[in-house]
């Protein structure tokens, strides 16, 4: 029988901090999660469809327009306003709003992101609903603020309150207004790109497409590889342009393959990326935010 080479116990090996972090407990004493990292980061459930319809007063909402729409695509904002007002929303726009802080948060500058997030929390403190025409910025305010303020109980409370009021545009239309048919018309074939944060953080999967299906004159075709990222990713597109371009090339190829004349999405970041790629190929395919398609008077946006 060969002898033992060396007897070291795990506690001599593991760093003390890890050892003290764990506690002894008998086998199978508890199968329940003690701490689930994402447990306290789950946003409030969105309102049930039609919840508002029973109320007589028109819903009051504040528009968080997003930097990219404000600075680069103001006409998208105009369409958002027109669609919401047409559906009876009492819409306001707080003029001192700026950025939700996501570019800073995504780059790891959480302290600076908190500076901007605090402004947002103050601005929309009294809002009934906050409508955001971007899955990404909406996810920042609904989901990531809870992470950003995880160590600050007072701010976290305020963030949780905002989180329960934030809706992405298509989500607001379907979940709060209960809109199934916006009475819009559009002439053409469209395909829909689901943006990643809208899909996976806001859990909005079918709403934009069901709204598009209700548009008369619009034929919706499936986009192959729809749920694969377009490669935008904010600063990622500039930090790693070669990877971003590779992902974009696949997306553009898939969009072109549908034969659609219009690409629709709910995030202007993605549409700046995919639209920029299509434009570089001198493609005739138009890129439109969902609100532009639902805005009846869409001719002014073309």
């Amino acid at each position: 029988m060969p002898g033992r080479i060396r007897a070291i116990s795990w506690s001599q090996i593991l760093s003390p901090v890890a050892a003290s972090n764990t506690t002894q407990s008998p086998l199978r004493q508890s199968r329940l999660p003690r701490s689930c990292l994402s447990a306290n980061l789950t946003p409030a459930d969105p309102a049930q469809p039609g919840e508002r319809l029973s109320s007589n007063s028109p819903p009051k909402a504040d528009l968080f327009v997003t930097c990219i729409i404000d600075q680069l695509y103001p006409q998208v904002g105009v369409s958002v306003v027109r669609v919401l007002r047409r559906l009876g929303v009492d819409l306001s726009f707080q003029e001192d709003q700026t950025c939700c802080g996501q570019p800073l948060y995504n780059a790891g500058y959480s302290k600076k992101a908190r500076t901007l997030a605090r402004r947002v929390l103050d601005t929309f403190e009294d809002s009934e609903y906050v409508v955001v025409p971007s899955g990404s910025c909406a996810a920042m305010m609904r989901v990531f603020y809870l992470d950003l303020f995880r160590d600050d109980p007072a701010m976290l409370k305020q963030a949780e309150l905002l989180s329960s009021k934030v809706y992405e545009f298509s989500q607001f239309l379907t979940s709060v207004l209960g809109a199934e048919d916006t009475g819009s018309t559009y002439s053409g074939t469209a395909t829909y790109h689901p943006s990643c944060h809208l899909l996976r953080e806001m859990k909005v999967r079918d709403e934009p497409q069901s709204l598009l299906r209700s548009v008369s004159g619009l034929e919706l075709t499936d986009l192959p590889g729809a749920e694969t990222c377009c490669g935008f990713g904010g600063a990622f597109s500039i930090k790693f342009p070669h990877i971003s371009e590779g992902m974009l090339a696949d997306k553009v190829e898939n969009v072109v393959s549908t034969g659609a004349d219009t690409l629709v999405s709910c995030d202007m970041g993605c549409l700046m990326q995919i639209g920029g790629g299509l434009s570089r190929q001198d493609s005739e395919i138009k890129v439109r935010h969902l609100a532009q398609v639902l805005d009846q008077d869409h001719s002014s946006n073309s």
Binding site: Q71, L72, G77, V78, A249
Partner: peptide
């Protein structure tokens, strides 16, 4: 220049959304 290697970039428009809001939508 890193953006425009393979992508076109939209121009900055004359007016921002908040300009239009103040003028026409408020």
């Amino acid at each position: 220049s890193r953006w425009t290697r393979m992508r076109d970039l939209p121009e900055l428009p004359k007016e921002t959304f908040r300009d239009i809001w103040k003028k026409d939508l408020k």
